[in-house]
């Protein structure tokens, strides 16, 4: 056995390595490289073009002193809490109802999920129309005789983010319902039987037995919703373009506008780095729980 006959390690599985080049490039150049690049340039005073002229944390100080950014963050928090709470609650309730061996289960599921097939742009435009104060829900009810009826969330700065959340819930709850339904179907039939023999009422079975058993499903769903919340952009653009005024601005829109309109790249980079940071706060503990303990990716 001579050493020279052993093929070099580099050439083992050569085809597999060649085939993986797009993946490796994407992972290293775009995901790692791109992220590092943006974070690095967020410490510069780049304006129209990226320039390596470091100014420390200046962009961040400016960011957190900009009212538009603060409103964006506030909106994101409200939108996030509403999305999380309502989509989890409504999604779970719908899934639990569908899990009662009902007739027309497929029909109901199809109806609840179809908005998820639509883009945020389409969703936003439909709800913009439904919430139109003159012709939409408010107009219809006023014309029925209740003239003092007020429901114009998209034109009222103090509640505009709730109007956007309604559309988001309409679009996304079906997905949560599907995930929850898959989780419920994954529960051992015998558990239900045991609870019935024990005489535990259905709502108590859900509350004390089934929901605790579905913890992993809830956590995964939470991560999915959370990472979607941070990305919210198209919906706002379609529904309000950030208005009235800047009342419905969100961070993703802030980033886009500063990079491509305000020609203030440094601000855009700093804002996007803040977005990255907030996602990491959610993802890192989850990834640690999910993949850290067991070696399973």
């Amino acid at each position: 056995m001579s050493k020279s006959e052993r093929p070099s390690r580099l050439f083992r599985n050569l085809n597999a390595k060649v085939a993986s080049i797009p993946m490796i490039l994407t992972a290293l150049v775009v995901f790692v490289g791109g992220t590092a690049w943006t974070v690095l340039y967020s410490f510069t005073n780049s304006k129209l073009l990226p320039r390596l002229n470091f100014v420390g944390l200046d962009q961040y100080y400016r960011l957190w002193a900009t009212p538009r950014w603060l409103i964006s963050i506030e909106n994101l928090l409200i939108y996030g809490v509403i999305s999380l709470v309502f989509s989890l609650v409504i999604g779970f309730i719908l899934a639990a109802l569908l899990d009662q061996k009902i007739r027309f289960e497929d029909t109901f599921r199809t109806i609840f999920l179809y908005p998820f097939a639509l883009s945020f742009i389409v969703t936003g435009l439909v709800w913009q129309w439904l919430l139109n104060p003159d012709f939409g829900i408010q107009g219809v009810i006023r014309r029925l005789g209740w003239t003092s009826f007020d429901f114009d969330p998209l034109y009222n700065s103090s509640i505009v983010i709730y109007g956007i959340s309604i559309a988001a819930l309409w679009q996304g709850t079906g997905l949560i319902m599907c995930l929850m339904l898959a989780g419920l179907r994954g529960i051992d039939e015998d558990i239900w039987k045991a609870a019935r023999v024990d005489g535990i009422p259905m709502w108590k079975t859900y509350l004390f037995i089934i929901i605790p058993m579905m913890r992993p499903v809830f956590i995964t769903t939470l991560v999915i919703i959370a990472s979607g919340i941070v990305k919210v952009y198209d919906l706002v653009v379609a529904q309000t373009s950030g208005g009235p005024g800047i009342a419905s601005e969100v961070p993703a829109k802030y980033v886009y506008d500063y990079m491509f309109f305000a020609q203030n790249l440094g601000q855009g980079f700093a804002a996007s780095t803040m977005m990255l940071l907030s996602v990491m706060i959610v993802i890192v503990p989850w990834a640690y729980l999910e993949f850290g303990g067991r070696k399973r990716v």
Binding site: F31, G34, T38, G268, T273, M275
Partner: peptide, 14 residues
């Protein structure tokens, strides 16, 4: 992990 990074972070380098 990259799937969770907000696109905004990678838009400009691309």
């Amino acid at each position: 992990v990259g799937a969770f990074i907000p696109y905004q972070v990678m838009i400009y380098p691309i």
